[in-house]
Write a protein that binds this DNA or RNA. Structure first.
Length: 211
DNA sequence: ATCCCGAGGG
DNA sequence: CCCTCTGGAT
């Protein structure tokens, strides 16, 4: 990608979303880890509706390990995939207690060994809770990256991540991650991209395809 | 009908 | 690579 185009995009993201940040509600690394795990295939807003009750009832990793799985299921049922997520939370908490003294590990390689924690979740946690430069690729980052030419449509999420890391300044990774998400979530949406108002249409691969 | 800060299993 | 898990919002 031409550097000029790239800088235009980053400038536009700064103009649109100077204060982009994580929209999941949490107060500790463990709460963040659980909130991100819950966020699969649902919206952050939906996750924020169920976590207050969840975080009120359970606090430590051992609380989740010893919890009744059906109790967790009931608390999170509305966000979907609730059986898998409840099971993952319990198993993840058990491993945290066994191998990490109940604390959340601070590296991606350690985090992805936890049940229910994949590369995207691990990347979010290290970037958000421990300030490790990272580029988590979720559905928004993937879509926006492909539309704006940071990656090709046939690229896997891992390839998208590699290309973004190769292209974007490392000191801006964590902020840009959120700016990509804000742009995808509120502007360049999956079904309704606001192409006519978009300052970047000229370099978009899908201009005029949808609206 | 499609999408939402995915991960695990086949 | 594919499929499944799942409710809620639009």
């Amino acid at each position: 990608m031409i550097e000029k185009k790239q800088n235009r995009i980053l400038d536009e993201f700064d103009r649109l979303y100077p204060d982009a940040k994580c929209e999941l509600h949490y107060t500790t690394p463990l709460e963040l880890l659980i909130a991100v795990l819950l966020s699969a295939q649902t919206t952050d807003a939906s996750v924020n509706k169920v976590t207050p009750e969840l975080f009120k009832k359970y606090h430590s990793a051992s609380d989740y390990r010893d919890a009744n799985q059906e109790d967790i299921e009931q608390l999170i049922r509305r966000i979907g995939l609730y059986r898998n997520k409840a099971r993952s939370i319990k198993k993840m908490a058990a491993m945290l207690c066994e191998k990490y003294d109940g604390e959340v590990p601070q590296s991606i390689n350690e985090l992805i060994t936890l049940p229910g924690v994949g590369r995207k979740t691990a990347s979010v946690v290290v970037g958000e809770a421990f300030y490790v430069p990272s580029v988590p690729v979720d559905t928004h980052v993937e879509r926006v990256s492909k539309r704006l030419g940071f990656a090709k449509n046939e690229d896997s999420v891992l390839t998208v991540e590699k290309k973004l890391k190769r292209t974007l300044p490392r000191e801006r990774w964590n902020k840009l991650h959120h700016q990509f998400i804000f742009f995808g979530r509120y502007f360049c949406k999956a079904q309704s991209p606001r192409c006519k108002e978009c300052q970047l249409v000229d370099l978009c691969k899908e201009k005029n395809k949808k609206l």
